[in-house]
Computed example of a mutant assay.
Amino acid sequence: MKDVGLWTIFKVVLNHSHLCCPDQVEMLKQHRELSMFVRRTIKTHEEAGIRPSKTYQSFVATADSHRELGFIEKDVMNYITRELNLEGDHYIKHAFWADVRSRAAFDYFGNVVSFDNTYNTNRYNLVLGSFVGMNHHGQSTLLGCALMKNEDIQSFKWLFECWLRCMRGKAPKGILTDQCASIQRAIELWMPTTIHRWCIWHIMKKIPSKLNGYKGHNEIEQDMSHVVWNSNTKEAFDRNWIDLF
């Protein structure tokens, strides 16, 4: 017996005390089950970024009715949360995306490409890498992007292979990247004919930390920035750089 205030409970019957509706008995929890085929399909859809609700509706459409499935949408969600997420780092590693518009833009503006991997997502700790070109209006145009779990040579080899395959195997004449040894090695392996240069923005960003210990470093930074950004030709840069020192 338990007194809960307004009511006093004498007895609790946890089993069903009434007959179940015959046409709904299969939807009770103890009767619902995900087959191996359904589990594989859910995992494939999850890796492709398809929402669980869309995955469930595809099963319904195939079976003509949700009553013919033997499971409900909540079972799909529970399987993703309980089973697939247990795979952790081995489950979500890399994802690459490029569309027809990106491929068409590369055909016109793919001579020199910038690859940037300095963005990092907070929730899943995935690195965002983007291939960017410049169109005839001087505007940036996206040529492909990826989410990566690791930034080692194998990861970049995988990414460049996917990107080149999407661009019909045509490598750019030049590529600009951060000062990353893994990226450099992957480019040497997959784009050996491409001229690789470090991005000037990343170089200039590191100058304050490199010169911070020197007297008059603010003036040096300003003079270096002037030489870098206002030298319109190679000859002008070489002349101004020599004059600087």
Rank of each mutant, 00 (worst) to 15 (best):
R101Q: 11
H94Y: 06
G138L: 02
G213V: 01
T194H: 01
I207F: 15
G144M: 12
T121L: 10
L176Y: 15
F37C: 05
G144Q: 11
I203L: 14
G70D: 01
N15H: 07
I203N: 11
E188Q: 13
K2Y: 14
F115D: 04
V76H: 05
L189F: 02
S140M: 06
M191A: 09
E219W: 07
K215P: 05
F160Q: 02
H202E: 10
L159W: 08
Q222A: 03
K149C: 04
Y56L: 01
T118E: 06
L84R: 01
C199G: 09
L6K: 10
A181F: 13
Q222K: 12
G144H: 09
V227C: 07
N78F: 02
I72D: 05
S114E: 11
K74W: 15
D238G: 00
M204G: 13
A63L: 07
Y108Q: 14
V228G: 01
T194R: 00
H90L: 12
D238L: 00
F131C: 04
W158N: 11
K149D: 04
I203T: 12
V12A: 08
F96N: 08
E47G: 04
L189T: 01
K29E: 14
L147E: 11
S130W: 01
F71C: 02
P208F: 05
R123A: 13
W198S: 09
F59P: 05
G133A: 01
M148K: 11
K2W: 14
L211K: 12
G70L: 02
I50T: 10
Y214K: 14
H226V: 04
Q24K: 12
R40S: 13
S58M: 12
V113W: 02
H90K: 14
M134Y: 04
P192Y: 08
E33F: 12
E33A: 11
I195V: 15
V227T: 03
K11V: 07
F160L: 14
H66A: 00
S209R: 12
V38D: 08
